[in-house]
Design a protein around this nucleic acid. Structure first.
Lengths: 186, 186
DNA sequence: TATGCCCTGTTTCGATTCGAAACTAAATGG
DNA sequence: CCATTTAGTTTCGAATCGAAACAGGGCATA
C-alpha cells in the first residue's frame, strides 16, 4: 500500500518538469503544445509520425492537432509529406529549424543537472525501479502505451538486424529506439 | 552516465500522465490548467495558496493566472479571501464543488491501478530511488522547489508539535504534509 | 463494380487561454 | 515622506481548445 505513493512522487516530478517547460516555451515564444509536438516528432518512428498518432499521444482532438500543425508548418518547424501507399495519411517531419528550436527550448540542462546530482549523491542508483514504474503505468493506461519499439512484443531479432512482427518490415537500430504508436506490452 | 536516462523514463511517465489528464479534463468540460490549479490548491499549505504562488508553481504569467482564477470563481470551484495582515494578498480555497470536481477529474484510478501492477510484479520495490530522483530534480530546478513542508530545512519539531523556522508559527500534521512555496532544501 | 462504412485529416465556430504591458493599491525601506 | 517593490487586475490581440460538420480515400461485402 505504500507502493502507490511512488506515483505521488512521479507526479511531483512531472509538475516540476511542466513548470520548467512552460518557462522555456515562453522565453522562446512558443506554446507548450508546440514543444510537445516537436519533441514527439523527434522521438517517434516512421509508423507514428502522423496527426492521428499525435492526437492519441497528446490526448487532444484531431481538430486541435490539425490547427497546431498548421501553425508549426507556417513557422517552418514542421514539414508534411503524403503517404505513398495510403493517400489519406500524412507523415510529419521536423525541419532543420524545428530541430534547432527544439534543442534550444528543451530543458535538457535541467535533466542533465538533476542527473549529475543523482549520480553524485546516489552512485548505486539503478534504472530498474523506474523502468518497472513506467511499465506499470503503461499497463494501467487504457489506450496505447507509446513505448519504445525495442520493448514491444512484436519486436524480433533476425540474422541481419531487427524486424517488426506487425508490419513484417526490417528496422534499423535508430528505429528500434524510438516511440511507436503500435507499441504493445508483453 | 547511464544515470541521466532515469529522467528519460520520468519524462515518458510525465507524458502519459499528461495525456490521461487531458482526456479527463475534456470529459469534464475543463481545461488542463483548471485541474492543475485545483490540484495545487488541494495540496498546498496556508502560506502558498495565493495567486503569486500559483504563478510560480505553474510557470505562467500573473495576468493569465488572474484570468483563470476569475473563471474558476465564476464556475464556483474556487473562493477568494483577503489576507487580514497584508491587504494586497489574497488566499485561495477550493469550494465543496471544487473538491468534488477535482475528485472526479483527477486520474486517481490510473495511479492506483499502476500502483497495483507495481506491487504485484515488484513486491520489493521501495520509494527511496524515487525520493532521490525528486530531490535531485528540485535541486536542479533553479527557482523554488515547491516541496513538502516536512522536508524543508526550516521545519522543526517542538515539544508540542511542529514549527516553521521561517514564520515561527506552529504547524499541524496536515500543514506539514502539504506543498509550500517557501520550501528550501537542506 | 457498386454501396456503405470506417478512417484520416481539414475547416469553421465560439469560448477560453496565453503573454505582454499598463495599471491600482498596499507594503517596505531608506 | 517619498521612491521602490510587491500583489493582483485589466485590457488587448493572437493562439488554443473542443465540437461538429465536412471531404475524400480505403475496404469489405454484396
Amino acid at each position: 500500500m505504500q507502493k502507490v505513493d511512488v506515483y505521488k512522487l512521479i507526479e511531483r516530478m512531472a509538475a516540476l518538469i511542466r513548470s520548467e517547460e512552460r518557462k522555456r516555451c515562453t522565453e522562446m515564444g512558443l506554446q507548450v503544445v508546440h514543444l510537445q509536438v516537436m519533441d514527439y516528432l523527434s522521438r517517434c518512428n516512421k509508423y507514428s509520425n502522423t496527426p492521428v498518432a499525435l492526437t492519441n499521444y497528446l490526448g487532444m482532438t484531431k481538430g486541435t492537432v490539425s490547427q497546431t500543425l498548421l501553425l508549426l508548418e507556417r513557422k517552418g518547424f514542421v514539414r508534411k509529406e503524403a503517404d505513398l501507399a495510403d493517400k489519406r495519411m500524412v507523415h510529419l517531419y521536423l525541419t532543420e529549424e524545428g530541430q534547432l528550436m527544439l534543442g534550444q527550448a528543451y530543458p535538457s540542462d535541467l535533466f542533465s543537472n538533476a542527473g549529475l546530482f543523482l549520480e553524485a549523491h546516489n552512485p548505486d542508483l539503478t534504472e530498474e525501479p523506474f523502468i518497472n514504474a513506467l511499465t506499470a503505468l503503461q499497463k494501467a493506461h487504457k489506450s496505447n502505451s507509446f513505448g519504445l519499439c525495442k520493448t514491444c512484443k512484436f519486436f524480433t531479432h533476425t540474422n541481419d538486424g531487427f524486424l517488426c512482427g506487425l508490419t513484417k518490415e526490417t528496422l534499423t537500430q535508430s528505429d528500434s529506439e524510438k516511440i511507436c504508436q503500435e507499441h504493445t506490452l508483453l
